[in-house]
Amino acid sequence: MRAVLLRDLQLAVRAGGGFGLGLAFFAIVVILVPFGVGPEPEVLARIAPGILWVAALLAALLSLDRIFAQDAEDGALALIATAPVPLEGVVLAKALAHWLTTGLPLVLAAPVLGVLLHLPAGAMPWLLASLTLGTPALSLIGAFGAALTVGLRRGGLLLSLIVLPLYIPTLIFGAEAVARGAQGLDPLPGLLLLAGVTLGCIALLPFAAAAALRVTLR
């Protein structure tokens, strides 16, 4: 499993794009918003938590199909499935690699973009906390969706149709926690629920994704 994690990280770094593209997409979406809604600081501050979370969602979505698609294409996935490692562990390792290459950079870049959107300074810690707690769930849910659609033509579009509804609870809890933090309310309930979603995803989705992979490999 560690081997899978290290290899996926290596592949992401070598292929370029792994860190860069998702992050650049995140930044561009956030930067485009003021052009759409106007430059008033109050308006931007009001919608900043939602924008940052929706942009993070879309940026995570962008690279999901690569979790399994490349390994399925060159036959590595079938060979990994016959190796003496549990497929559930492989899913978890690959989701973790996706998070490290996509989710973590988003978390680190978010405060800068928060400043651009006039997010109140008091909400910054909550933005960091909510993204840190929530983005792993995005990677895991995405890995599940990628496992369902691996090897399908039109897989990418289908993947977003399946994954985005599953992202709704994460989005709501994450953005709500930041919004409450920005308004000076207690953001803790949202954060705790968010942590609950992520922990539930870690516990359950590797099994669902591995079951789906076994079906697609059949």
């Binding site: 399946i162 509804p165 709704i168 809890f173 079906v215």
Partner: peptide, 26 residues
């Protein structure tokens, strides 16, 4: 394979649909 995969999606989707229901209330 379609029956299997949609079955898995239905199970996982049910959990998330229920979760969304409460998330939306919140």
């Amino acid at each position: 394979a379609a029956a299997d995969l949609t079955g898995v999606l239905c199970l996982v989707g049910s959990v998330f649909a229920l979760l969304s229901r409460y998330a939306v209330n919140f």
